[in-house]
Simulated assay, not measured.
Amino acid sequence: MLTEERHQFIRDRLAAEGKVLAGELASRFGVSEDTVRRDLRELAKAGQLRRVYGGAVASAPFAASTISQRGSHAVEEKMRLARAAVGVLAAGQTLFIDGGTTNEAIARAIPRDIELTVATNSLGVASALADLPLVELIMLGGRYIRDLGTCVGGDTLAAVAQLGADLFFLGSCGLDASRGVTAFDSAEAEVKRAMARNSAGIVIAATNDKLATAAPYRVAAADAIRHLVVERTAPAAILADFERQGAEIHVA
Rank of each mutant, 00 (worst) to 15 (best):
L89T: 09
F62Y: 10
G87M: 12
V125M: 10
A58L: 03
A64T: 10
Q245H: 08
D147T: 14
V251T: 15
A91N: 11
D39F: 02
A126E: 12
K45Y: 04
A194W: 01
S172E: 08
D185L: 00
E33R: 02
E231R: 07
A189M: 02
A91E: 15
L123Y: 08
S32W: 06
V125E: 07
R6A: 11
D155T: 12
R146G: 13
H227D: 03
G71C: 14
D185R: 01
F62A: 08
A56P: 07
G54M: 04
L21Y: 07
A74S: 14
T182P: 04
A252N: 10
A105R: 05
R112V: 06
G92T: 03
R38E: 05
F169K: 03
R83H: 14
L140S: 03
A236R: 10
L2P: 11
P235R: 11
L43Q: 05
T233P: 00
I67D: 04
G174A: 03
T233S: 15
V118A: 01
R83S: 14
V75I: 15
E76Q: 15
A236H: 06
R226L: 08
L40E: 02
S27T: 15
E136D: 13
I238C: 15
I145D: 03
A196S: 10
T102D: 04
L157R: 09
M79E: 14
E188G: 00
R41I: 08
N121F: 03
A158G: 11
Y53S: 13
G180Q: 02
T233R: 08
L239K: 12
L129M: 07
A194V: 03
E77P: 05
D12V: 10
E42G: 08
P133G: 14
I249D: 10
L43G: 05
E5Q: 13
R218G: 04
H227C: 07
R37K: 12
T150Y: 02
M139H: 09
P61A: 12
L170C: 13
Y53T: 15
G171Y: 01
S178L: 09
L228Y: 05
V86P: 03
V181Q: 03
P216A: 01
A212Q: 08
R37L: 12
Y217E: 14
F9E: 14
D209R: 10
A220D: 04
A214Y: 01
G124W: 09
I202E: 04
M79L: 14
S186N: 02
L89P: 00
L123Q: 06
A215Q: 06
R193I: 02
L123E: 07
A214T: 09
A58D: 12
R41F: 06
E5C: 01
E104W: 06
V219S: 02
E42Q: 13
A240P: 00
G201M: 10
S122G: 00
D147V: 10
P111M: 12
Y144V: 06
L81Q: 03
A15V: 08
E248T: 15
A234Q: 02
L163R: 06
